[in-house]
Design a protein around this nucleic acid. Structure first.
Lengths: 168, 168
DNA sequence: TCCAAACCCTTGGATGTCCTAGTATATTGC
DNA sequence: GCAATATACTAGGACATCCAAGGGTTTGGA
C-alpha cells in the first residue's frame, strides 16, 4: 500500500521506551507491538485471498472447522470454544453464512438449548476451494523462514498454554 | 474467561491440514493462526489495563506517539503512517480523543490540507499514567521468556521488513 | 416435585478497521 | 497562469469483536 518507512517504527518505539526509563520492559513491548502489526498484515492478505469467495476470515474459519467435523455439523457453543471467539461472534458469522446458503441451523436432537450448525453441499465445496487458494496464495508464501515457523509455533504455543487456552 | 480446552485447537488444525494432503503448508498455517490468537489475547489484556483510563489501545497508541514527538504534535497523515493504520482510523481516534479533551486539532501553519494533532496537558498526563500501568501490568508480565522475546523481535522484524513495512 | 441456578443463543450497543467517495488545498506541467 | 494531478482529511457503509441483557431450556438440590 504505502511506501516503506525509512525506519522500523517499532524499533523506534523500543528506543523511546528505553530513553524514558522503561528499559526493562522495552523488549516485551516491542515484541507485543510487532505481533499486533504482523497480525494486521497477515489478516489483510487472508481477507484479500478470500474476497473472491465472498468470505471473510471469520466466516472461513467457521466453514473450515465444520468441514473437519465428522458429521459436518457442530453445536454453536462448541464452535465458539474451538475458534476461541465470543458466542455472539459465532451468531454473527452463522447469520451471514446461512444467508449465503453455506450453512444451516438445525435444532439439537436432545438439548433444546443448543443449535447445530451444518454445512450445506455448497458450503463444503466453497470451503474446499477457499482452502486451496489460501494454501497456495498465503500459507505457502508466508514470508517466514522454515526454522522461524517452527520457532513461532513453539513460542506462541507456550504463550497460549500459559494464557490458559489449553491444558494439554 | 473459559476453562482451558483439553487440547490445543491450533495443533489439531495443523494435524487436520496434514491429514488432508496439505502437509507442506500445515506449519505456516499453524504459525499464522497462532499469531492471530496471540494477538487477540494480548489485545484483551491491554484493553483491560487501559479501561480505567477510558482509553482503548488505538487511542492509547496515538497518545503515546504524540507524547514522544518533540513538540507533542504531529500531522494526522504522519500519525497514520507511523501507526500503520488507515487514515480514517486516525480520524476516528482523534474525534474521540478530542471529545475527551486529550488532544486538539490545529491547522498546519503552511499546508492548508494538513491538520496537526496536539496533546493537551491532560492528554500528556494521562498518557504517562496509562503507560506506567501498561508497563507494570502487561509488558512486564508478558508471559514470554526473555530469550523468546528477542526471537520474536527478530523473526517478526524480518517478516515486517519483507512485507514492505520499512526499508532500514 | 419444583424452583433456583446454570447454560445456550440472540438482540442491541459501543469500538475499531478498512474501503469508496467527496471536498479542499498544493503541486506540476504546458 | 491555469488546468490536471496529487495529497490530506472526513463522511458513510460494511464487518468483526466484545459486553450486557433478555428469553427459553436443563439440571440439581431442597
Amino acid at each position: 500500500m504505502n511506501a516503506p518507512l525509512p525506519r522500523d517504527p517499532i524499533a523506534d518505539a523500543q528506543r523511546n521506551w528505553e530513553r524514558h526509563g522503561w528499559g526493562d520492559v522495552a523488549a516485551p513491548m516491542a515484541a507485543i507491538t510487532a505481533i499486533m502489526r504482523t497480525q494486521q498484515i497477515l489478516l489483510a492478505r487472508i481477507e484479500g485471498a478470500l474476497k473472491p469467495f465472498g468470505l471473510t476470515f471469520a466466516r472461513y474459519e467457521l466453514l473450515a472447522l465444520l468441514s473437519f467435523a465428522r458429521s459436518g455439523a457442530l453445536p454453536m457453543n462448541k464452535a465458539s470454544a474451538l475458534l476461541q471467539v465470543h458466542p455472539t461472534s459465532v451468531t454473527n458469522a452463522v447469520d451471514r453464512l446461512e444467508k449465503a446458503g453455506l450453512v444451516v441451523r438445525s435444532p439439537h436432537p436432545t438439548d433444546g438449548r443448543t443449535t447445530l450448525i451444518e454445512l450445506t453441499a455448497e458450503g463444503r465445496t466453497l470451503a474446499k476451494s477457499a482452502t486451496a487458494v489460501l494454501n497456495t496464495e498465503v500459507f505457502s508464501q508466508s514470508g517466514f523462514a522454515d526454522r522461524d515457523v517452527n520457532q513461532l509455533i513453539r513460542i506462541l504455543g507456550d504463550f497460549r498454554r500459559g494464557a490458559g487456552d489449553f491444558s494439554e
